[in-house]
């Protein structure tokens, strides 16, 4: 899975240019996230604005992506579409992550 990485001074934004993070792609997503977060800022925002659907395997892979970043680093989420937001809300994983309306929000916050 190819991820789109944009690094700013304090924040790295990683966009997922795919419609789904599901059981068939969860492992590739987790490995791509590992490669995209080995270096760079401690604060990473995962932009899910193009992702229409996440199943429980995809959700698990997002949690794993946060855990593999290591202590002291932070993974936020941005741009949750309705079905993706529903999975996070039902599993209460929306209480675990900081969720931004869009990927630009944390940048506005950082500079404002």
């Amino acid at each position: 899975m190819k991820l789109e990485v944009t690094s700013h001074e304090m924040v790295r934004i990683i966009a997922v240019p795919e419609a789904r993070i599901d059981a068939a792609g969860a492992l590739r997503f987790k490995e791509a996230m590992r490669a995209a977060t080995t270096d760079g800022p401690d604060h990473v925002v995962l932009d899910l604005g193009q992702v229409r659907f996440v199943d429980s395997s995809g959700l698990g892979a997002i949690v794993a992506a946060m855990k593999q970043m290591g202590a002291g680093r932070r993974l936020d989420l941005a741009g949750l579409t309705p079905d993706v937001a529903k999975v996070f809300r039902l599993t209460r994983m929306d209480t675990v992550f900081v969720i931004h309306e869009d990927a630009e929000a944390p940048l506005r916050h950082a500079t404002g």
Binding site: S56, L59, G60, V63, M66, K67, A71, V87, T91, M93
Partner: peptide
């Protein structure tokens, strides 16, 4: 059962949501 989300980050579940979602929906 709903996933348990208490405890530190390293202990967050990476699975076990499937039947919870099926039963909820």
């Amino acid at each position: 059962d709903p996933p348990t989300l208490t405890g530190d980050r390293d202990n967050l579940p990476e699975g076990g949501f499937g039947w919870f979602l099926i039963r909820t929906l």
